[in-house]
Amino acid sequence: MLNRIVDKAKQRAYWQENTALIRNLLIVWALVSLVFSILLVQPLNALRIGSVPLGFWMAQQGSILTFVALIFIYAVQMDKLDRKYGIRK
C-alpha cells in the first residue's frame, strides 16, 4: 500500500514537471511566432541582421530556428526528467 502511495506521488511530480516544461516551451514558441514575428515586426525591422531587417528575418528564419531549438531542448530536458524519475524505455 505504501509503495502505491509513493508511486502515485512520484507520478504526480513527474507529470507536473513534464507539463511545466511543455508550458514553458509553448510560451517561448508563442512569443517568437506571434509577438516577434507578427506583432513587433515593424519595430524590429528598424534593426538589421546584415542587410536584412530583423522583423523579416524573425518571421522567415528566426522562428524556424527557434522551433528546431525547442525540439532539441525538449528532448534533452525530457531525457533528464526520465532519468530523474527512473523511467525506462
Rank of each mutant, 00 (worst) to 15 (best):
L2P: 13
L2M: 14
I5R: 10
V6C: 08
V6H: 10
R12V: 14
A13H: 03
Q16D: 10
Q16Y: 10
Q16C: 11
E17K: 08
N18P: 07
A20L: 12
R23A: 15
R23I: 12
N24L: 07
N24W: 00
L25S: 00
L25Y: 00
W29K: 10
A30H: 03
L31D: 01
S33V: 09
L34R: 03
L34I: 07
L39M: 12
L40A: 03
V41M: 06
V41N: 02
V41D: 01
Q42M: 15
Q42H: 15
L44S: 00
L47I: 09
R48M: 10
I49Y: 08
I49F: 10
I49A: 05
G50V: 05
S51Y: 08
P53Y: 02
L54R: 05
L54Y: 01
W57G: 05
Q61M: 12
Q61I: 14
T66L: 04
V68S: 05
F72H: 08
I73C: 06
I73T: 06
Y74M: 06
A75K: 11
V76G: 12
M78F: 08
M78W: 05
D79G: 11
D79M: 12
K80Q: 10
K80R: 12
L81M: 05
L81H: 00
L81F: 05
D82E: 13
K84T: 06
Y85T: 03
G86T: 03
I87Q: 07
R88D: 09
K89A: 13
K89S: 13
